[in-house]
Amino acid sequence: MLISIVIPCFNEEEMIPIFFQEMEKIRVKHHYNFEYIFVNDGSTDASLEKMRDLANHYDFVRFLSFSRNFGKEAALYAGLKHTTGDLITVMDVDLQDPPELLPDMVTIIQSPEIDCVGTRRSTRKGEPVIRSFFSKKFYSIINRISDTEMVDGARDFRLMTRQMVDAILELSEYNRFSKGIFSWVGFNTHYLAYENVERVAGETSWSFWKLLGYSIDGIVNFSDTPLNLAAFTGLFSCLLSAIALIFIIIRALIFGDPTSGWPSLVVIILFVGGLQLLSLGIIGKYIGKIFLETKKRPIFIIRETEKDKNKPK
């Protein structure tokens, strides 16, 4: 049974050899048949050279190198698309996805009732407090406003059957949010919990703002609640304005038409204008997603693979 391992990489020259050594311990100990697929997502360091070196020494190591940085979502999709294994797993090269969980995952997925074995962090020890807070809030919000359930703390690290991966590959949308896609396609998933593991070496390329933008994309991709919120906000603003207008007319009939009150008028104008801009921003976000989809641009462009022998070594 062949197990394909998809490993997205962006500036991970330090971690690639360490990750490979740790995974080889698992392969040798349990006599697994591995197929490594490293995806170089436009790295500017020596990540590609590390991949070339491994591919030259081991027939079961493959790599895809993008023409530029397309993002982790594109790297995941490209890696899954080029797998040939019976079972497929996605892992981060930083070893925050513990390789020692893989044997248990392989055992569990042997059950005919299980199509996927996912992993989730039971704790966020070592993670910045602000990031942990917003991560929990994201899962709380997305599960309230979306029909697609996402497990709090779930990682991309999961072992899937070929049937499930084929279903994922049928979703060739440009705007991708893999955590949502993994859940949307369905299939029976069993989750393994583990304590948070910090990076072994190198630095993460995910800043707080990148994660925040990624979260917003996830909400937009799997829920139309923000659009409904914009509509209800507009309706509420109209009703409030109508009530205020009736109040002003009644007050003028009873007490006359005072000239005071322009500060409150300015505040009301700014408030309504802000609501309009907020609603336009929400609508614009969805229109932008539609615009990118209609262009039909490729999700990724491959510059080099392990089969390109003429590339510089």
Rank of each mutant, 00 (worst) to 15 (best):
A230C: 09
E100A: 10
R162A: 09
P298N: 13
A244M: 08
A74H: 04
G126Y: 10
F222N: 02
S264Y: 13
Y174F: 14
L171C: 09
I250S: 11
E170C: 04
L159Y: 05
A230L: 09
P258R: 14
Y36P: 02
I299N: 12
Y58T: 10
D217V: 15
V220N: 01
G126T: 07
L239W: 12
N196D: 04
D224I: 15
L212H: 09
N11L: 05
L280E: 10
L253T: 10
Y32P: 00
F187S: 11
W262M: 06
F134N: 01
Q96R: 15
A193E: 14
L265W: 06
L253A: 14
G218T: 14
T123F: 00
F60L: 03
F222R: 11
E24Y: 06
F177V: 15
Q276W: 12
Y32K: 12
A242M: 13
Y191K: 08
G126E: 07
D166E: 14
R131T: 12
D257A: 14
P112T: 13
I37E: 00
Y139E: 05
W184P: 00
S172Q: 11
G202H: 09
V61E: 01
I243A: 14
L159A: 07
D224W: 04
I301V: 15
D115N: 15
C9M: 03
S172E: 13
I219D: 03
D104H: 13
L253R: 13
I248A: 12
G273H: 01
L239D: 06
I268F: 13
I287H: 02
I141P: 02
D53W: 08
L253I: 12
